[in-house]
Amino acid sequence: MTTYDSDRDDVIRAATALQIRSVERDACLERLRHYRHKRLLLESARPGSLELFGLIAAVGYFVLDKTIGESFSDGYKNSELHRRLKEFFQRLIDEKALKIAESIRRVIASRKIQAQVRALPPADDNSPHIIVIDISPVQKPSDAEELMTLGRALE
Rank of each mutant, 00 (worst) to 15 (best):
M1D: 14
T3M: 02
T3H: 04
T3N: 13
Y4F: 09
Y4R: 07
D5N: 13
D5P: 00
D5G: 10
S6H: 05
D9G: 00
D9E: 06
D10R: 07
D10C: 03
R13L: 05
R13H: 06
A14W: 01
A17T: 12
L18Y: 03
R21S: 15
R21G: 08
E24V: 04
R25A: 03
A27P: 01
E30R: 12
R33Y: 02
R33T: 08
R33P: 00
Y35A: 09
L41C: 09
L42D: 09
E43D: 12
E43C: 11
S44Q: 04
S44Y: 05
S44G: 15
R46E: 08
G48S: 08
G48H: 05
S49H: 06
L50Y: 03
L52M: 09
L52D: 09
F53Q: 11
G54E: 02
I56Y: 07
A58P: 01
V59K: 11
F62R: 15
L64S: 06
L64V: 04
I68E: 12
G69R: 01
S71Q: 12
S71K: 13
S71P: 02
F72L: 13
F72T: 09
S73Y: 01
K77S: 13
K77R: 13
K77V: 09
L85P: 00
K86M: 06
E87Y: 00
Q90G: 08
R91F: 08
R91E: 14
D94L: 02
E95D: 15
K96W: 04
A97I: 01
K99M: 07
I100R: 07
A101W: 04
E102V: 01
I104A: 10
R106K: 11
A109P: 02
S110K: 08
R111V: 08
R111G: 14
Q116K: 11
V117D: 09
V117P: 00
R118C: 02
L120W: 06
L120G: 06
L120T: 10
L120A: 08
P121T: 10
P122V: 10
P122M: 11
A123Q: 12
A123S: 04
D124R: 01
D124L: 01
N126V: 00
N126A: 02
N126T: 03
S127D: 11
P128N: 09
H129G: 05
I130R: 07
I130K: 02
I130P: 00
V132Y: 03
P137R: 14
P137K: 05
P141A: 03
L150R: 10
E155T: 03
